[in-house]
Design a protein around this nucleic acid. Sequence first.
DNA 1: TATAATTCATAAATCGTTTTACTCCGCTTA
DNA 2: TAAGCGGAGTAAAACGATTTATGAATTATA
Lengths: 342, 342
Amino acid sequence: MRVTIKDIARETGLSPTAVSLVLNHRPNKLSAESRELIVETAKRLHYVPNQLAVGLVTRQTHTLGLIIPNIANQYYATLALGIDEEARKHGWNILFINTNDRAQNDLDSLRLLSSRGVDALILAVASDVDAQTRGEYRSFIQKSSVPVVLVNHEEPSFRCSTVKLNNRAGAYEAVTHLLELGHRDIAYITGDEDLQHTHTERIQGAMQACADMGVPFCKKYVRSGRYTTEGGAQAAQELLSLPISALFCFNDMMAFGAFQRIRQMGLKVPEDISLVGFDDVPFAALLDVPLTTVKQPAYEIGRETVRVALGEIEDRLRSKQQIQFEPELVLRESTAPFVPKP
Amino acid sequence: MRVTIKDIARETGLSPTAVSLVLNHRPNKLSAESRELIVETAKRLHYVPNQLAVGLVTRQTHTLGLIIPNIANQYYATLALGIDEEARKHGWNILFINTNDRAQNDLDSLRLLSSRGVDALILAVASDVDAQTRGEYRSFIQKSSVPVVLVNHEEPSFRCSTVKLNNRAGAYEAVTHLLELGHRDIAYITGDEDLQHTHTERIQGAMQACADMGVPFCKKYVRSGRYTTEGGAQAAQELLSLPISALFCFNDMMAFGAFQRIRQMGLKVPEDISLVGFDDVPFAALLDVPLTTVKQPAYEIGRETVRVALGEIEDRLRSKQQIQFEPELVLRESTAPFVPKP
DNA sequence: TATAATTCATAAATCGTTTTACTCCGCTTA
DNA sequence: TAAGCGGAGTAAAACGATTTATGAATTATA
C-alpha cells in the first residue's frame, strides 16, 4: 500500500496534523527538530500525497481540463503543446480529451472533466455545433463552478473568456493577396455553412476583401467539408469541375488534401490553381509546393489561453477577456499570378 | 455548490446509502418507487458524482496516465489518438503529459500521475535515458502499485509489458532496399549512440542487412541528433560533406528536416541522395518528393497498448506481455537506383 | 504563589463517496 | 404468543488528506 500521512505520523510519533502542517509549509509552532524529523521521514518513506484526497478537501486539483477536436491536426498539436508547457510552468497538469471534432463529445467531456475536479476547462469547440448543442454549451458554462475558456472560437452568448485569432483579418489578407494576383474565380473550402463557427468569420473576411476590391463574391464557389485531409480532397474534387483559378482552404489539413487531389487530377499548383491554406502548421513549408497560408501563432495562443485560465482560477470574478491574435500571411510558392486559359 | 449525494438523500427523504446503491446499480432491497424516486431526483438536480471522492474510496479512477515525448510529432499524435479512442471506448480517460523528450520529465510525470490515482501508466520513454535515469525508471516500475506499460520501446530489465514495433526488421528492410538499389555509402541519422533505445535496434537491423549482403557497415556515416526536424537538418548537413549516396533517418520528422537541408544545399532527392524515413506519418506521402519510409501502425499500436493496460488493471498478476508489430516498407519516390558520380 | 504567557502540539470535523453490518417492523407459523 | 423471517432501509466507518479550535506543559510575571 502507498504510504500515507498517518504512516509518517506513526513513524515520527507526531500527529497527522503536524505532518500536514510541516509538509505544506503552513505556519505552525512545531519545534525545529520535529519539523526536520517529519521532512526527513517523509523523504525516507517516499511519501507522495494522494492528490485525490487533497483535491477533495482543498477543492483544488491543480489540473486543467483540455478538450481538443483532433490532436492529429498539427495546429491543435502545437496548440496543445503551448498549453501543456505553460500549464506545467505554473505547476498545473492537463487532463486531456480528444473529441474527434464532435460537439456531443465536447459536452460529455465537459461534464466528465468537471466531475474530475479540474480547476478550469479549456475548450476548443468542435465544428459541428448546432442550435441544440449550442444551448447545452451555454447552459453548462453558465452553471459551471469552474472557469471555462474558449480557445480558437468565439461565442459571445457563452459569456466566457476567449483566446483566438482574428480570423476575419486572416481571410481578408489571403483573399486580397489572391485578388491582387489577378484571380477572380476563387473557391473556398470551409466548414458547414449552417453553423456559426470560426469559418464564418473567415468567410466574412473573404467577402469583405472582395467588396473592397469591387469584385463579386461568388457563393457557388463555396464548399463545406470536414476539417481533415479527406474533407479537403473531396471538396476540392467537386470544385475543380468549376472554372476556378484559385482555392482557399480554411485550414492546412484541408489544403493538403486538396493539393493531393489537384495533383491526382493532373493539374498543377500554382500554374493551374493557386492554393492558400490557413494555420501554417509546421509541415506547410515542406509540402511539395510550399504552401502559402495564413499563420496562426498556435503555440502562443495556447500559452495565452492558460494564462487567462489561471487568472480566472485565481480570481473567479475577474472580468471575461476576449483576446485576439493577429494573423500573418506567409507567402510561399503555392500562389501565382492569374493567367487566362488559352 | 455542486449537488452531492446528500442533497439527493435530503430531497428524497432517503439515506445516502440508498442513493449510492441505486445510482450504482448495486444489489439492494429498496422498493421500486424509492428507486425510481432516486433516479429521477438525481436527474432533476443534475447530479454528477464527484470522481475525486469515488476514486478515494474505490481506488479506481478510470483514468490512464499517458506520457509522451512530443505530441507535435505526428507519430506520437497518431499513437495518442489510438490510445485515447480505445481508452474512451472502454470508459477510461487520459491524463496526459508531454515531456519534451526528457527522461527527467518522464520520472516526474510518473510520480505525479501516480499521485493522481491513475489506474495504469502508459509510457513512451524519452530518448535521453542514461544509466542513472534507467535505474530510477526501473525502481519506480518495480515499486509502482499500478501497472506500467511501455510503448514504443523495450527494456527487458524493467519487467513490464511492452508494445512496440519490430524495429530491427524495419531498419533491415529499409537498408536492404537501399542496398538492392546499389547504394553502398549509406548514412544514418539516429539517436544518441551511448543510449540504449529504439534506435539501437534500428542500427542493429541496418548492420544485419549490410552483413547479409556482404557490404561493410561504415560507422563513420552514423550521426546522432534529436528526434526533431531541426535535429535531422543539422545531422544531414554534417553528413552531406561525406561521399554518401543514401540517407536513412530514424524518424520521419528528421527525414523532413534532412530533406529541407538537402534541398537548401542545392542537391536533389532522389537523384543525388536517396532518402528513407521511419514511421510513415501522414505527411510522408505529401512531401515534395513523397517519402519512402518504414511504416509503423501507430494508431493500432496505441489501441493495443490500452488493451494491454486494461488487461493488467483487471488482473494485476497477469503475466507481462511483449507485443511486437511488424513494420512495412512503403516505397515512394525518395529513393532511386545508385548512379556513380561522373 | 497564583496567574499569565509562551511553546509545542493535537482532536476532531470535513470533503463526497462506498460498503459492511446492522435495525426495525410487520407478518407467518407452530 | 413467541420465534422466525422477509422486506425496506440506515448508521457508521473508511478512503487520505486539511484545517480550526483547543489543550497541556513549561516558563515568566506580578
